[in-house]
């Protein structure tokens, strides 16, 4: 999957959409880590996964409250 052409714009949009009050320095930290994080997520879109079910389980019976 291609990386966004403007990483800063992509990160800024995601952070603003989430309502996170990052400082400028914190935003820069996110911009710096984003390419590796994005590449890691993209590495999971491989043909071998094409017909896999997600490892998620839902049961309609509520669990006992602990």
């Amino acid at each position: 999957m291609p990386e966004p052409k403007d990483v800063r714009a992509a990160v800024t949009a995601a952070v603003e959409a989430a309502g996170l009050p990052l400082t400028d320095a914190e935003l820069e930290a996110f911009v710096s880590i984003y390419p590796a994080l994005r590449a890691g997520a993209d590495s999971l879109y491989i043909e071998a996964v094409r017909y896999e079910e997600p490892a998620l389980v839902f049961t309609p019976v509520p669990p006992v409250q602990g």
């Binding site: 997520a41 999971l44 491989i46 996964v49 896999e52 490892a55 998620l56």
Partner: peptide, 11 residues
């Protein structure tokens, strides 16, 4: 991406 991670997890 989160759901894909869980599909990859099955593999």
């Amino acid at each position: 991406d989160y759901v894909q991670a869980q599909r990859f997890r099955s593999l």
